[in-house]
Amino acid sequence: MKIESTFKVKKGFAEMLKGGVIMDVVNAEQAKIAEKSGAVAVMALERIPADIRAEGGVSRMSSVEVIQEVMNTVSIPVMAKARIGHFVEAQILEELGIDFIDESEVLTPADEVNHISKHEIKTPFVNGATDIGEACRRIGEGAAMIRTKGEAGTGNVIEAVRHMRSMTKGINEVLSADENELMALAKNYGAPVTVLNSIRESGRLPVVNFAAGGIATPADAALMMQLGCDGVFVGSGIFKSGDPLERAEAIVIATTNYDNPAKLVEVSKNLGEPMVGINIDDLHESEKLAKRGW
């Protein structure tokens, strides 16, 4: 007797990705480089966040051809992005047999109020979150994995750090609260109280929490791991750098050995140019992707 796609199986799959690096790729060639470098999964998309930022316009789910090309090229899991609230893009990705759907603020949102109800879809979902309330709402909708939003396409880790610190602070608040304070906390956060209860049972978020948004160097990856993330997404940081394979390998090794400074020195050598970064303060409010999501 087999029961497919239970929440335990979705969540369990995310557990298997822990300690790993998930890399954005736009074609089969990049996917091969990512696999060769030791990525645990690739995210197939049409344009990496730095280019979406530069080129503007409406950003949508990747073309079916690109996704299938990547799926046929690598043996590691393949993820793809759907727009926030665009449940039909999610249905298409499910039908394609993608391994994970990222309901992502990097794409232009399709719904300014609602996210996708993720329980009904067989494919597991990862969602971005800036704080504990947002994370709990997404888990309540059925997300099997959470990531920081960071500020994608900037090569600037400051927002990812902000989101992770805020998450940890929220979790500590939930853990130290009196039983009588829990519903008020839930009200404050806009979080389902059932998810807060799971946090109290396990002492952590009930699903895996990765770092994402602005990670560009091995040191950035190790920083996020030391802050308590379970693994790392790297978007523009690899294929916008001078030597993608070298940098990808270095970030993979740094993510495993995040608490070993000697190793971090070793992998930080001879990496070539990192991607050019953007100061968050130089962004107009409307250009901040982390603001998307509700």
């Binding site: 087999k2 335990k8 369990g12 799959f13 298997m16 043996s75 899991p77 391994d99 994970f100 067989k122």
Partner: peptide, 29 residues
């Protein structure tokens, strides 16, 4: 055979006879 059952959508919980006991376990890719 790696990913012998298919991709993540084909991942499942299944009843396994293991040693002298049985339980439902996750099979993930």
């Amino acid at each position: 055979e790696r990913n012998g059952y298919g991709r993540q959508n084909q991942s499942f919980e299944g009843k396994v006879q293991f040693n002298n006991f049985n339980d439902n376990y996750c099979f993930i890719r």
